[in-house]
């Protein structure tokens, strides 16, 4: 199933990426080619094959419930593009 321009537009919105009209055009073309190439694994019979969501044979990695030093507000906010007091600030969120 090749990827259409509409799909790219929808997905770009999901990913919160602004695309210029020309960019959308070009990306759609390239992605279509890439997806067709990727589609080659559809020829495989994958019935009964488990999905390798984790490649390592490890499990139950846990830490003790013990505090560790963190960052002070000043350090947390040192790269903030906009802040007010000890808060990060963003354009108003409408709920």
């Amino acid at each position: 199933m090749p990827i259409t321009k509409d799909t790219v537009e929808y997905v770009a919105h999901l990913a919160r990426i602004d695309l210029q009209a020309k960019e959308l055009e070009k990306l759609s073309r390239q992605l279509e080619e890439i997806v067709i190439f990727i589609d080659r694994f559809k020829e495989l019979d994958l019935k009964g094959v488990s999905a390798a969501s984790h490649i390592l044979p490890i499990h139950n990695v846990l830490r003790e419930d013990a505090p560790r030093p963190g960052l002070c507000a000043e350090k947390a906010l040192q790269c903030a593009p906009q802040k007010e007091g000890n808060f990060f600030a963003v354009p108003k969120v409408i709920e």
């Binding site: 419930d65 013990a66 505090p67 030093p69 963190g70 507000a73 000890n86």
Partner: peptide, 26 residues
Amino acid sequence: TRTKAFCGCPTEFGAPANSQVCPVCL
């Protein structure tokens, strides 16, 4: 719990803003 789900920051309520944070929970 004493600390957060994925890092060692405290979970107490009412601390000054962004004072119970670390790279993980940020």
